[in-house]
């Protein structure tokens, strides 16, 4: 299927990129690996006047493991994250999420930044004209109805990123740069929860880095994903779990982050160090949105959010015990 027309830009450094973005604002779209962007363009869901390839930017690629924090450049490929021994060691859930994302060949192209900022998805939105021509426009296509939920007053499209839940489980932050300024925000703040405009990021802002704080003392983490085939497919439900302990071995944080549960990852923060599996499963179930807008029925996916939350926590606890 043909891509719509656009003008192509290819900055070679961040400054240049920021200037280009500043000049063109909404008319410009960033292309990292292109695996999400180009598919949406092909379906003509978006037709940007400018496409800016950030593949040639230096300094925003690679993993830098420091003492207090680990910095991952936005252009780092998922394949490199999945394979990094250090990520596997210290941030197991993140490595697992990267390993499970898409298929091996796609992770050769897909970047971490693009993964976080990939658009939310819906069976009634991510379609070619074959489906969409003649259908009333939904919220996400600038209309006023929802095709997935009869009478739906808002958009129920789903964030199917594998990386976002895993990163949020580790309390990751991200660095956003625009011409003349830089801000660092918690990754959770990047998500609006609104399916139509899922990200709180300016059209002139470039995500440059993801920062993962170094957890103190013992940590266990895990990522669990549900899909019908063993590769390629987006998660139908997913859960990243993070458990940490004090010096004395007492659990002081226990967090589950759900993916594919709504327009943003859903955080279940067990501040009370709750590790009771059934109650976490229940909370996950309560928190997940079960809408019939992906492959399997919403009710089923919602149940699976509970099962995966439980399984992820259990795996994280086991790893913690094993000292991983």
């Amino acid at each position: 299927m043909r891509l719509p027309p656009f003008q192509f830009l290819e900055p070679t450094n961040v400054e240049e990129a920021l200037s280009m973005m500043n000049a063109r604002k909404e008319t410009l779209k960033i292309m990292a690996g292109g695996t999400d962007l180009l598919n949406r363009m092909r379906f003509r869901l978006i037709e940007p006047a400018f496409v800016m390839n950030i593949g040639k930017l230096r300094d925003v690629d690679g993993i830098d493991i420091g003492e207090n924090e680990t910095v991952i450049g936005t252009n780092t490929k998922l394949k490199d994250i999945a394979r990094s021994p250090l990520i596997n060691n210290k941030f197991r859930a993140i490595a697992e999420a990267a390993f499970e994302a898409a298929s091996p060949a796609v992770t050769n192209m897909a970047t971490i930044g693009g993964n976080i900022l990939q658009d939310t998805r819906c069976l009634y939105y991510n379609q070619s004209g074959m489906v969409l021509n003649g259908l009333e426009r939904c919220h996400k296509r600038g209309g006023t109805i929802c095709l997935a939920v009869k009478g739906g007053k808002r958009c129920f499209s789903v964030c199917q990123s594998d990386m976002a839940p895993a990163l949020i489980a580790f309390d990751a932050k991200c660095v956003l740069q625009k011409k003349g300024s830089t801000r660092t925000v918690a990754l959770t703040e990047l998500f609006t929860g609104n399916g139509v405009t899922p990200f709180a990021i300016g059209a002139d802002e470039l995500l440059t880095k993801i920062i993962i704080p170094q957890p103190k003392n013992g940590v266990g983490s895990a990522y669990r994903k549900l899909r019908l085939r063993g590769s390629v497919d987006y998660p139908l439900a997913s859960a990243a779990a993070f458990v940490s302990v004090t010096k004395d071995g007492e659990v002081n944080a226990c967090r589950v982050v759900l993916g594919s549960a709504g327009a943003s990852p859903r955080v279940i923060d067990g501040r009370s160090c709750e590790t009771h599996l059934e109650s976490i499963a229940q909370k996950a179930y309560d928190s997940a949105e079960g809408i019939d807008n992906l492959q399997m029925p919403g009710a089923y996916r919602r149940k699976m959010a509970g099962v995966l939350a439980k399984r992820a926590i259990k795996a994280a606890m086991d790893r913690l015990k094993e000292g991983m």
Partner: peptide
Amino acid sequence: RVLTPTQLGYL
């Protein structure tokens, strides 16, 4: 309308 006409939809 077929909602799963692609290789991501039809498994």
